Amino acid sequence: MTEEQIWTPLEIEAELAGGTEELTDRLKDLGDELGSLLAQEKALVFRGFGVTPGRLDAVLDLLLPNRLAYVHGNSPRTKVGSNVYTSTEYPQEFTISMHNEMSYAHAWPARLAFYCQIQPGGGGATPVVDSELWLNSLDAEIREAFAGGVRYVQNLHDGYGLGKSWQDTFETDKRHDVESFLDGTGATWEWKADGSIRVESVRPSTTKHPLTGTEGWFNQADQWHPAGLGDDTAAALSQILPEDELPQNVTFADGSPIPAEYVVQIRDRGLDNAVDVDWRTGDLLLIDNVLLAHGRRPFTGDRRVLVAMSD
């Protein structure tokens, strides 16, 4: 975090012994004002309300008016409830770099809610970074290079291979469902002889918030580029598959390669400017997915954080 970075999420703590009922009452009182409060504060942390898995749906119904399925998501997750998922199944010893959820897609969730079912033994914070700050922290050369947008490439296997299958990605085993979904996204795709599908999408690198008008960094180039994985992992992948056949990859919109040094700067400056949200069992974090990017710090022991999203 830089010296100029003074923003932190708004923490809302329990005042009574009412637990989850107190939280739902306060959210009902907020009503439609919750949206404007979130746009103003960017993130809200709810602590001390003792939310249990059995009461989670009641709270999420108020935080997320229209819960979305994780269709076309690229991160490994398990569905555990009504459009509620594990936040990630990425190995616990690794950092997950900053990203706005599904910024590579034609449509993305406006809000994300994270729920801590089991607090980590150590570490495991969810870092969040102001997307406008992240954009402005990048060298002018990089901002200019990305002005034309980026091209995302997915190679989704048919059940066996690296990365996610197209069945897991689109939550269906029917090809026509996949095609119907992709028809409205501006993507191009091709089914391969081995049953896999290749999907290409050109998206902008920044976006403006619909209420505040602020422009922020809004793409996942550093997560989709081999250089974002680190030298060892990238080298290992290059021994297995050519770059064009990786489960996911990214270039500039015209197909030209993105320099590795750009990717490293994007990844590192996002993390350097992030604010960590630490977890205790029962906590909830609500974030505006355009105003803030999020990630995950490494952790020890157990950690179970669930996520849901809405438009």
Rank of each mutant, 00 (worst) to 15 (best):
I6F: 10
W7P: 12
W7I: 13
P9L: 14
I12R: 00
A14D: 13
A14N: 14
E15F: 07
E15Q: 12
E15I: 04
G18N: 05
T20H: 11
T20G: 04
L23M: 00
L23R: 12
L27M: 08
D29G: 04
D32E: 09
D32Q: 09
E33P: 03
E33C: 13
G35E: 07
L44M: 00
L44Y: 02
F46Q: 09
F46D: 03
R47Q: 10
T52H: 06
P53K: 02
G54Y: 08
D57R: 06
L60C: 07
L60V: 06
D61V: 09
A69L: 10
A69V: 08
A69H: 03
G81L: 05
S82I: 12
Y85D: 15
Y85P: 13
T86N: 01
Y90N: 01
Q92V: 14
S97N: 10
M98H: 03
H99F: 13
N100Q: 01
N100V: 03
M102G: 15
Y104A: 08
A105N: 08
A105F: 09
P109C: 01
R111F: 15
F114D: 05
Y115F: 02
Y115D: 07
C116H: 12
C116N: 08
C116K: 00
I118R: 06
A125G: 02
V128A: 08
S131F: 10
S131G: 04
E132M: 07
W134A: 15
D139N: 03
I142P: 01
R143M: 14
F146D: 15
G149F: 06
V150C: 11
V150G: 05
R151W: 01
V153G: 00
N155P: 00
N155S: 02
L156I: 00
H157A: 10
Y160F: 01
G161M: 03
L162T: 11
L162N: 04
K164T: 14
W166C: 13
W166P: 12
T172I: 12
D173T: 06
K174I: 15
D177P: 12
D177Q: 08
V178T: 06
V178H: 07
G186Y: 02
E190G: 09
A193W: 07
D194Q: 14
I197S: 14
T214Q: 11
E215T: 15
E215N: 00
G216P: 04
W217N: 06
Q220I: 13
Q223C: 02
W224A: 08
H225D: 08
H225K: 03
P226A: 13
G228S: 12
A236C: 01
A236H: 08
L237Y: 06
S238E: 00
I240W: 01
I240D: 03
P242Y: 07
E243C: 12
E245T: 01
F252I: 13
G255D: 06
S256Q: 14
I258S: 11
P259C: 12
A260K: 01
A260V: 07
E261V: 06
I266N: 10
L271S: 05
D272L: 15
A274K: 11
D276G: 04
V277K: 02
G282N: 07
L284D: 08
L285M: 04
D288I: 14
D288N: 02
A293C: 04
R296K: 00
F299P: 13
R304I: 11
R304G: 05
R304W: 14
A308Y: 09
M309T: 02
M309G: 02
M309Y: 05
